[in-house]
C-alpha cells in the first residue's frame, strides 16, 4: 500500500495535475482582483476626501492623481475579467467598484448637481480597463455606490452649513439657509428614488437591506442640522457645527 501514498502510484495523478494548473491560475487571477479592489477602494476614499474639500482649484488636480492610481489598478486586472470571467470575480471587485462609484457620483453631483446615471457611470468605468478590455460595472454595484454617496452628501451639507459657504447645489443664492436646503431637497429626492426601487430577491436585496437604514439616517441628520440652523442660526458662535443628532456619529459607513 506504500506505493499509493507516494503520488506516483495513483493512476489519477495526470488528471489532478491538470486541475492543479487550472486552479492555480484561477487563484492567481482572484488574488490580483482582490488586491486591485482593495487599492481602488483606498484611492477612491482619498478621491472623495479631495473632492469634498471646499477649495475648488485643488479638486481637479487631486482627483486626477487618484484617478491615475485607480486606472492602473483596473488596467492590471482587466484581462482577468473578460468573457467568461467577466462575472467570475465580481464578488472580489465589487467593493472597489462600489467605493469608486461613491466617489464618481459624488464628484459628478458637486460639478453638475445631478445624479450620474448608470449608463454614464458604466462608460467611465469601462474606460478604466483600457480600450480592448473594458471593466464591467454591474447595476448592483452602481446602486450600492449611490447608497454610500448619500453619506458624502451628508458630510458635505453639514460642513457647508457650519462654514457658511456652500459649493454645489443652489450655491448661486447668497443665502446659506436656502442653499443648504437645496442639498437637502436633493437628498430627499434621492432618498425617495432609492426607497421606491423594488428588489425582491438575491444578493442585491440583502445588501440594500443593510444600506437603506444608514442612507435614511444620513438624510435625517441633515434635516436635523437644517432645523438647528433655522432655530438657533443667528446665535451660533464661530466654529459652530450643526447638531445632527444626539447619539453622536460613528455608525455611518464610509469613514
Amino acid at each position: 500500500m506504500d506505493a499509493s501514498t507516494a503520488s506516483g502510484g495513483s493512476p489519477f495523478m495526470p488528471m489532478f495535475e491538470k486541475f492543479r494548473l487550472e486552479l492555480d491560475e484561477h487563484h492567481d487571477r482572484r488574488e490580483r482582483v482582490i488586491k486591485a479592489s482593495r487599492d481602488v477602494t483606498a484611492a477612491s476614499k482619498k478621491m472623495i476626501r479631495t473632492v469634498g474639500k471646499p477649495i475648488p482649484p485643488g479638486v481637479r488636480k487631486g482627483f486626477t492623481q487618484h484617478e491615475e492610481v485607480i486606472r492602473s489598478q483596473y488596467t492590471n486586472i482587466s484581462k482577468d475579467m473578460q468573457g467568461l470571467n467577466s462575472f467570475r470575480y465580481q464578488r472580489q471587485i465589487s467593493g472597489g467598484n462600489q467605493e469608486l462609484l461613491e466617489a464618481l457620483t459624488f464628484q459628478h453631483y458637486l460639478e453638475t448637481e445631478q445624479l450620474l446615471s448608470y449608463l454614464e457611470a458604466n462608460d467611465r468605468v469601462a474606460g478604466l480597463g483600457g480600450p480592448e478590455s473594458p471593466i464591467l460595472l454591474t447595476p448592483d454595484d452602481y446602486l450600492l455606490g449611490v447608497f454610500d454617496m448619500v453619506g458624502e452628501l451628508m458630510r458635505h451639507a453639514v460642513t457647508a452649513m457650519a462654514t457658511g459657504e456652500l459649493s454645489g447645489a443652489a450655491s448661486s443664492t447668497g443665502n446659506e439657509n436656502i442653499a443648504s436646503r437645496g442639498i437637502l431637497a436633493d437628498m430627499r429626492d434621492l432618498r425617495s428614488s432609492l426607497e421606491r426601487l423594488e428588489v425582491d430577491d438575491g444578493f442585491l436585496s440583502r445588501d440594500i437591506e443593510k444600506k437603506m437604514p444608514v442612507m435614511k439616517q444620513c438624510v435625517e441628520k441633515v434635516e436635523n442640522a437644517a432645523y438647528g440652523l433655522i432655530v438657533r442660526g443667528s446665535e451660533r458662535p464661530k466654529g459652530w457645527m450643526p447638531d445632527t443628532d444626539h447619539v453622536g456619529k460613528g455608525e455611518v459607513e464610509g469613514y
Binding site: 503520488s7 502510484g9 495513483s10 489519477f12 495523478m13 488528471m15 489532478f16 492543479r20 486552479l23 487563484h27
Partner: peptide
C-alpha cells in the same frame, strides 16, 4: 480512496 487522496494532496486549495 488512497489514490484520490494522493491527487487531492497536490492541489493548492485556498
Amino acid at each position: 480512496v488512497k489514490d484520490v487522496h494522493a491527487g487531492f494532496q497536490i492541489l493548492n486549495l485556498k
